[in-house]
């Protein structure tokens, strides 16, 4: 299955300078994003998932820089961009972003209609009545009833879920190719969360978007993803189709992540928990970054960084366990249970 690649990242290194020390936030990350797909990037806080997508839009904090590698979008290497003007051709126009907290990503002093029109004027070159019409149609698309009246209101007059719809409206009003959603529903209630995820999926079809989700909630991932990339300590340790990563995970970190889900726990027994803490990225990480927390780590895990091993044409993982010479280690019971029985559903 040949798919068109819209964005291609190769061996990306990102470093931050903090109090005179260098932090290796991303350590040689490679990823191909296919046109029209929905990719979810999963990882704990500090794994580098947000930093990774920020590099696509030139939004790294001032103390961070790209230290190597390339990001190719439509034949151009984004890592070579130096001026804001170059980035303005990408931001919003090509790649748009929806942030976690709708309370803080809107301007409290402007009506939401004006905020959407601003994006339309800038990116679609429509003005006056045409821009207003487009604004109303986008508001309708994101499921806001009575758009005429609502457009005249300010962000504080909207509920959290409605505000997130407005943020999404602003993002799609730019007519981007790629929509990045950084924890889009973390600040919302579950019932609202389900509606917003549904909305993003509908818009993806309608506007032919490629979507990238960043989240730590594996339930959300199962809902939205065609493909999943698992990040740990500034690197993608496993990537594959949604079903492959959930039902046939290969990397010990993915195993640990799935095992610690309360849905897979047995009541009355302790829940699986990962020992220790993620590695300190101020230091060079030797071998497999997860090895110190993996009770079954092999000797080589502490010495040499594993390459990617292909599991299937769509699935690969960075673990020595997939080397033909490695001893056979079975995934933990909870992970096997997920593949055979699935999680308990609700009536």
């Amino acid at each position: 299955m040949e798919r068109e690649t819209i964005l291609s990242v190769r061996d990306l290194d990102v470093k931050f300078s903090l109090r005179g020390r260098k932090l290796n936030a991303l350590r040689g990350v490679s990823l191909d994003l296919y046109k029209g797909e929905s990719l979810a990037i999963v990882g704990e806080s500090g794994s580098g998932k947000s930093v990774f997508v920020k590099t696509f839009m030139g939004l790294l904090d001032a103390n961070g820089w790209i230290d190597g590698g390339s990001i190719t979008y439509k034949g151009e290497d984004l890592t070579k961009y130096t001026t804001e003007k170059q980035w303005l051709g990408i931001r919003g126009k090509e790649i748009a972003m929806v942030l976690q907290d709708p309370m803080t990503s809107l301007n409290p002093l402007k009506t939401i209609g004006a905020q959407i029109i601003e994006a339309i004027e800038l990116h679609q070159n429509l003005h006056g009545e045409a821009a207003r019409k487009e604004m109303l149609s986008v508001l309708t698309d994101v499921g806001i009833t009575e758009p005429e009246r609502r457009a005249k209101q300010y962000p504080h007059e909207f509920s959290g879920g409605m505000r997130q719809r407005v943020v999404i409206a602003i993002a799609v009003a730019c007519r981007p190719q790629v929509l990045i959603c950084d924890e889009p529903t973390t600040a919302l209630d579950v019932t609202i969360q389900a509606q917003i995820l549904h909305l993003i999926r509908d818009l993806k079809e309608k506007y032919n978007l490629t979507t990238v989700y960043i989240t730590h909630d594996l339930g959300v991932v199962a809902n939205v993803a065609d493909r999943i990339a698992v990040m740990y300590a500034g690197d993608i340790v496993e990537i594959g189709l949604c079903e492959e990563v959930f039902y046939e995970p290969k990397h010990p970190y993915t195993w640990a992540l799935l095992s610690s889900l309360p849905q897979l726990g047995v009541k009355g027994e302790p829940l699986y928990s990962i020992h220790g803490t993620p590695p300190n990225l101020f230091y060079e990480v030797k071998g497999d970054a997860f090895a110190p927390r993996n009770p079954q780590a092999l000797k080589i895990d502490f010495v040499k960084r594993p390459p990617y091993f292909d599991v299937s044409p769509t699935h690969k993982a960075r673990t020595w366990l997939l080397d033909p010479r490695a001893p056979k280690i079975d995934p933990p019971e909870a992970v096997r249970k997920l593949a055979t029985e699935g999680v308990k559903g609700y009536a």
Binding site: L218, A222, N223, F246, Q263
Partner: peptide
């Protein structure tokens, strides 16, 4: 019904 299930 709205709880996301970690099971695609």
């Amino acid at each position: 019904s709205a709880i996301p299930l970690p099971d695609p």
